[in-house]
Design a protein around this nucleic acid. Structure first.
Lengths: 207, 207
DNA sequence: CCACGACTCGAACGTTCGTTCGACAAATCG
DNA sequence: CGATTTGTCGAACGAACGTTCGAGTCGTGG
């Protein structure tokens, strides 16, 4: 459902090139997720898609750009889908549920890309880093806004909205270290547990 | 206070060697935390301690062993201090507070080492990886035991103990991505926010 | 003082990496 | 069909890395 849309990058003139690029990016994301960015060599990506190393450079200028495109498109898709899903939801409770659901649905559907986004947060440098950082900041602001409303609704004055949002992202973004689609909990259960713990933590009278 | 004790490794016969090794490990941890394991070259570590590259190999056999020693000693110190702190605390509420406090105190006192532990979780391979993994499993079991008791005490049957513990570690282990000792919240505040959100989330009647 | 062990070092090695080059093949266009 | 554009490739390059070697220095003990 919420597959990563690499079409955001589509500037080439041919559908075939788009598909080829998407194939490369998916392969790169898988290898980067498995082995980390540094150990994910261009040679491994090329072997994975059955192409030569040099031919990959027709599609991107550098290895770093490869990571950038994966992260940019992943965050972009995540944000676009979130905006869409939030359109008809106005109560804070519902909105935070949508946000958590959106995030985890993307994670479950694109384990590799989401892992690369979480784990390689600080890997990019310069303009690439700033560009992705802008998306992340937008995402954080949206979440923070909802948390602020939530805390107000529940009369909770102990929890700091910013830190609470950071802690929510702690749970959401750390999931890649322990979630296993083969042996772990169901997607539904993993989602509900985070939602439940978080919302209860907010609503409870504090001490 | 809870500084990492590299003395766990002390097998050499000279105090001077121990101090030298600790200096190297601290430098390596800092560079690894700043740049990631792969980009933290032996040359950078050597330059940082003002020694030649080759002389570092008097102290360890490989770069991987360097990372192993950092992680092993960090987790070992963390666990030892946790055991000690838990000795006179028997109620689950108090125990979880001690655990969170212990974890974050270690983080605040050894930002680099704790970051290396969190970020390079899957970097080691083979026996080194298994050795550190054992410590992490022990840590998780201790935390899980406390969470089980907590959930029982509060009559909470909605939250799954294992997932709840994983989500707690999400908050604790993700902190390295956002905590900044210069500009961020106070240590006390950061700690209290996690404790508060977590404990309230557990105690609250669920929906 | 000598012998020995601890400790240090510059140079070098072999390997691996990201990237480029020049040539060629395939696809498209008029 | 010829010209042009798109897409692919093997070989090679220069840089960087972890590690080792052989020599030397330093510290300690008898």
């Amino acid at each position: 459902m919420p597959d990563i849309s690499y079409r955001n990058l589509a500037e080439s003139r041919h559908l075939r090139t788009d598909e080829r690029l998407a194939t490369i990016l998916h392969a790169a994301a898988r290898i980067m997720a498995d082995e980390g960015y540094e150990r994910a060599t261009i040679r491994k990506v090329a072997a994975s898609v059955g192409a030569s190393i040099a031919s990959l450079y027709y599609y991107f200028n550098s290895k770093e750009e490869l990571l950038y495109q994966i992260q940019y498109c992943t965050f972009k898709t995540l944000l676009d889908n979130l905006d869409e899903s939030l359109e008809n939801v106005s109560d804070p409770d519902g909105r935070i549920r949508v946000l958590i659901r959106n995030h985890l649905d993307h994670f479950f559907r694109n384990l590799n890309e989401l892992k690369v986004c979480s784990h390689e947060l600080e890997t990019l440098k310069g303009a690439y880093y700033e560009s992705v950082k802008e998306l992340r900041k937008t995402y954080f602001r949206t979440a923070l806004g909802i948390v602020v409303d939530l805390l107000k609704d529940s009369g909770n004055t102990t929890l700091d909205p910013k830190l609470t949002t950071l802690n929510l992202f702690g749970m959401l973004d750390w999931i890649y270290t322990w979630y296993d689609p083969e042996t772990g909990p169901s997607e539904r259960k993993a989602s509900n547990q985070i939602t439940c713990l978080f919302l209860n933590g907010i609503r409870s009278p504090s001490r």
